[in-house]
Design a binder for these strands. Structure first.
Lengths: 261, 261
DNA sequence: CACAATAGTGGCGCCAAGCCACTAAGAACC
DNA sequence: GGTTCTTAGTGGCTTGGCGCCACTATTGTG
């Protein structure tokens, strides 16, 4: 405990500091931490399903470094406007994608001296799910675009460590899909069971059995049947459902078994 | 996309900035984010099992705010010494608890304007598991102490939002115990199956069936039998085992069913 | 009216977990 | 030395959810 550099900070320095043999070392390190706080940003992995494929929202960087390169949307936390990291993520979601309140969850924080050529940065990454129908991109279409995700990557390089971050987000989405309901956030409010199953299949990249899937979903009692409503296609129309409670989290008793782990 | 305050930063300002109607607004917000970066710290929830109870390592704060209050160990990231947030957490683990390489996993990042009375701070929290036998507390015993966790809290107030953080860490530990092997990190290298089962029971706060537990663990093929070795007590001696591969992550095919969810 | 296409149901077997009774091996006590 | 206590370890039956697959239902189309 002799080398603690804990939450003691600026305003109290000099007031309650005891004369201590380690004081010089303490102050040296303290000064360093004060004057070289890492830059702190919040980035978003915004995912949706369209055209039978998982897509991620990317923006083209207008400035160096990685100028012209595609990157995850995000940016500096504004301590004046953002009451919390969560609030910052919600703000950026609105500003970048013009979306009301889809699923938003903190993924992980990435920070190192070399992830940004300009020096030490930390970014807290959130991942968001939304229905492709509810997306209206604001601003210049050339700056932001939905990009198809194949496997756990897009087909080209991303700025910074964003490729790694995207891969982590996709893996998290996959593993959560195995035992939770969250795929409903990738669909519009009203949807059919075959549509929901197709969404799971697209993300898990594996066909699912119709009967097992229906049993699983219906036993979880998470859907509300919309009486009389049906959606037609080329075959028999399918019953429309609505997700019952967007706040409740439903866990399935077993994971969907995946052949290749 | 008109209000992006992305990773553009100091050294490039003025060099590649285009004359833009939003430039004034951009610079105002940019300046704010540069001069008011939140303080960035790393805190640790270090957990162990001793005396049939979950314990967390707490330190007594020597400085304001919350002077004299118990808090999670942690402190400022030192951008000179810490190559990454993970490295910072590993360093603090050694400095605070004098431990080599136990289980260490990022939990979550907490950041807001009001979690610290001095202003905007963000902390990335890690949680660590270790065998109580391998713990040797360094420094003054009055500054750091193992504190019993009842439910998901200690019996008194903690500094900052550390009570909430502790509760989140305990919940994460519980949910991970339901489908992974990680409780082995709470035991010494050599242990018996009843000891492992007892560890699960203590953390899950629920008795487990011996037969089911043994089947589950043995089918996962994660333990190595230490031939001839037995540990004796008051009854029949139990077989000693060693965890086979500390890097591999084993998932059980089904969760342990918990009665009260 | 047959047929294609998609939605939805039902039944069988498997597998891991719950539950519980049983055996195994040592210590303590008489 | 045998009985009893205590804890370790095994085995068998039941249960519940999922994989699998066949079957029915309801629409459009030629």
């Amino acid at each position: 405990m002799s080398q603690r550099d804990d939450l003691t900070k600026p305003n109290t320095v000099g007031t309650t500091m005891a004369a201590d043999p380690d004081e010089a070392e303490f102050l040296r390190r303290y000064a360093a931490s004060v004057y070289e706080k890492p830059s702190f940003t919040v980035d978003l992995v915004i995912l949706t399903v369209r055209d039978e494929c998982l897509h991620v929202l990317l923006v083209k960087r207008a400035e160096h470094p990685f100028k012209g390169c595609w990157a995850l949307p995000g940016g500096f936390l504004d301590s004046h406007r953002d009451a919390s990291v969560d609030a910052c993520a919600a703000r950026k979601l609105v500003e970048e994608a013009g979306v009301r309140a889809p699923y938003l969850e903190q993924l992980k924080t990435y920070g190192s001296h070399d992830r940004d050529p300009r020096g030490w940065t930390a970014t807290t990454v959130y991942f968001a799910l939304m229905a492709s129908e509810s997306v209206r991109l604001l601003g210049n279409q050339e700056e932001a675009r939905w990009v198809r995700v194949r496997g756990d990557a897009v087909g080209f390089d991303l700025a910074f460590d964003h490729a790694r971050i995207l891969a982590d987000a996709v893996e998290r989405l996959r593993s959560k899909l195995e035992y939770t309901h969250i795929a409903v956030h990738l669909l519009p409010e009203e949807f059919t069971l075959p549509e929901l199953q197709r969404t799971y299949e697209i993300i898990l990249q594996q066909p699912l059995d119709k009967s097992s899937f229906r049993r699983r979903v219906m036993q979880a009692d998470m859907l509300e049947e919309l009486p009389g409503k049906q959606r037609d296609g080329s075959g028999r129309p399918a019953q429309l459902y609505r997700f019952r409670d967007y706040d409740r989290r439903t866990f399935f008793p077993r994971s969907i078994s995946r052949h290749a782990r």
